[in-house]
Amino acid sequence: MDRHRSTISRDIKRGPEQRKKNSLASLPYQATSVGNMARIRKKNCGTTTKTTVHNTKTIMKYLEMKYSPEQIANAVRSVKVYTSTIYTWIYKKIVPIDIKRLRGHGKRQLKISN
């Protein structure tokens, strides 16, 4: 099979507990069906985006009220994203607002370190 024995044993052990009736995994062990299930699991893994309708509408509302992205990120409790994320969404047009309408006209403030 050209795979390490522990890989094969983990693959076989994973199968019976997760098998449900009337599914592709209910069949006896076959390498092709296991490969298909692995591809499906791989497609579902990874990070999720915080771009939700609620977040974008709330950010738009506060930007229209002349709040800066810094103020939104630090003061609005319902929006749990960082300032850089808000700026990224503005630059990528996920939050549809013109950069010139921002309070600082899109210029980020430099952090002064001592």
Rank of each mutant, 00 (worst) to 15 (best):
I12L: 12
V81K: 00
R77V: 07
Y29S: 07
T85D: 00
R41I: 07
I59T: 00
K92Y: 00
S23Q: 12
Y29T: 05
T51Q: 12
E64N: 13
S9Q: 11
P96L: 08
G35A: 12
I8W: 04
G35Q: 07
S68M: 07
T51R: 10
T88A: 14
P16T: 12
L24K: 09
V34P: 02
Y29G: 05
V79F: 01
L24H: 10
H54I: 05
T32N: 10
T52M: 06
P16D: 08
K93D: 15
M60H: 00
I97G: 03
I8F: 11
K100Y: 03
A75I: 05
R77S: 13
R14N: 12
E17R: 14
V76H: 06
L27C: 08
K100C: 02
Y91G: 02
K13A: 11
I12K: 15
K42L: 13
S33T: 14
I99C: 07
V76M: 01
R19Y: 07
P28L: 07
M65D: 10
I72T: 02
S23H: 06
T49A: 04
T48R: 14
G46A: 06
K61A: 11
A75C: 10
K92M: 08
K42D: 09
V76P: 02
Y87D: 02
V53Q: 14
L24E: 10
E64A: 12
T32P: 03
V79E: 00
D98S: 11
S9I: 12
T32E: 15
K50Q: 11
S23A: 08
T56N: 05
N22Y: 14
R77W: 00
T52I: 00
M37P: 03
I86C: 02
T85R: 05
T7P: 00
L27E: 15
A75D: 14
E64H: 06
Y29K: 02
I12C: 01
R101Y: 07
T32R: 14
Y87P: 03
N36A: 09
V79P: 04
T51P: 02
P96Q: 09
T58Q: 05
I94M: 01
M65S: 15
V79I: 10
R19G: 10
A31D: 10
G35R: 10
P96R: 08
E17N: 07
K13S: 09
K43R: 14
R10V: 04
T48E: 14
K80L: 11
I59Q: 04
I59M: 04
S33Q: 11
K100R: 11
I90A: 05
W89C: 01
E64Q: 13
P96V: 04
I94C: 05
T52Y: 01
I72D: 01
V53K: 12
Q71S: 13
R41Y: 08
G35Y: 02
T48I: 08
K57I: 08
L63Q: 01
A25M: 13
S84M: 07
K93L: 06
V34D: 12
V95Q: 02
H54R: 10
V53C: 06
N44D: 09
I94Y: 02
T83N: 06
Y91W: 12
K66M: 04
S9D: 07
